Simulated scan of single mutants.
Amino acid sequence: MNKPVKHLLAVTTLLAGSMAHAAFGDFPPVLTNGSAQLAFSDNGSMSLGSGGVSIRTPATLPGLPATDNRASYASGTRQLDLALGSFTISDDQRAAVATQSLNSLVEFRRTVVDEDNPDSLTRYVVSMQDVEVDLVSATIYAKLSSSVRNGLDAPLVTDLGRQAIFQATQVGLVGGTQGQITYVSDPDYPGSLRAHASGNFAGQLRMNTSTADTILGNLGLSTDANDPVAGLWRSVNWGTFGFTTSPVPEASTYAMFGIGLLGVGAMTRRRARA
């Protein structure tokens, strides 16, 4: 776009602002994309290691080879990244209160070798899919399922339902915008605004006790009250959680931009006839 047209579009968009609000009223903010990070602590990693458990995020979803996994775990940094697809906004339209990462898959894996037959392996997998985050209660949910495979036999899969996986020791958001929706200017189109929200859980992550027992049991590990591995899973600080949105133009900005384009088109046609 050449400079004269770009400047003309910016001016026309600004002049159209009052017209857009008069015609369309106030629009609710739009938050449609973003990213989240769950950073595992030293104690969280130790809990996994004590049970011989590793985390894996396949590149694509099983059975859906054309669907990319929206979760990615880096063992070096011990960070789980989630691509967020949608947000729920508070009734007063001032804050993000929930978000989700559909088509996300995180696997807890454990392999056991039969001492009497080293060639015989039992593979345990607990899958955490379609992560959802309640930003108000500081709770992370997901659909759980498990599979057990003995040697070359077909895996036995069990649906464990949607469960609360982690909950922060303190509710609320800190850092960033603390979950509040703010508006930032778009440098490409002066006068336009983009909705944005970000923040981190105020507390550390703890694994829900019943969920810890479900995962441990389906990984072939003890859930006994005195078991040291089970004790770690139920009590340690697993890490931290934070999120940020990808700025999206406010709905009224789209209306303003559309009116601006109409204005530029009219002026261009008028010049062509002159």
Results as ranks from 00 to 15, higher is better:
residue 2 N to C: 10
residue 2 N to I: 09
residue 5 V to K: 10
residue 7 H to D: 14
residue 24 F to D: 01
residue 27 F to L: 07
residue 35 S to M: 10
residue 37 Q to N: 14
residue 43 N to P: 00
residue 46 M to E: 15
residue 53 V to E: 05
residue 63 G to N: 10
residue 66 A to E: 15
residue 68 D to G: 08
residue 70 R to Q: 12
residue 73 Y to V: 11
residue 73 Y to G: 07
residue 75 S to F: 04
residue 87 F to L: 09
residue 95 A to G: 02
residue 101 S to W: 04
residue 104 S to V: 08
residue 116 D to K: 14
residue 116 D to V: 03
residue 117 N to S: 11
residue 117 N to F: 08
residue 118 P to I: 14
residue 118 P to T: 15
residue 123 R to E: 13
residue 125 V to A: 01
residue 126 V to H: 11
residue 126 V to Q: 12
residue 128 M to P: 03
residue 131 V to R: 06
residue 131 V to M: 12
residue 131 V to Q: 05
residue 132 E to I: 03
residue 136 V to S: 10
residue 136 V to K: 01
residue 148 V to W: 02
residue 149 R to D: 02
residue 149 R to Q: 15
residue 151 G to A: 05
residue 152 L to Q: 12
residue 153 D to W: 00
residue 158 T to A: 10
residue 158 T to H: 11
residue 163 Q to M: 12
residue 168 A to P: 01
residue 168 A to T: 05
residue 169 T to R: 13
residue 169 T to S: 14
residue 171 V to I: 11
residue 182 T to Q: 13
residue 188 D to T: 11
residue 190 P to V: 09
residue 194 R to V: 04
residue 197 A to C: 08
residue 201 F to Q: 03
residue 202 A to S: 15
residue 203 G to K: 04
residue 205 L to T: 07
residue 207 M to F: 05
residue 211 T to D: 04
residue 212 A to R: 12
residue 214 T to V: 13
residue 216 L to A: 15
residue 220 G to L: 00
residue 220 G to W: 00
residue 225 A to T: 13
residue 228 P to S: 11
residue 229 V to T: 12
residue 232 L to I: 04
residue 236 V to L: 05
residue 237 N to P: 06
residue 237 N to I: 00
residue 238 W to V: 08
residue 241 F to I: 06
residue 242 G to Y: 09
residue 245 T to V: 04
residue 247 P to G: 11
residue 253 T to H: 02
residue 259 I to F: 15
residue 262 L to E: 07
residue 262 L to G: 14
residue 267 M to N: 00
residue 270 R to K: 13
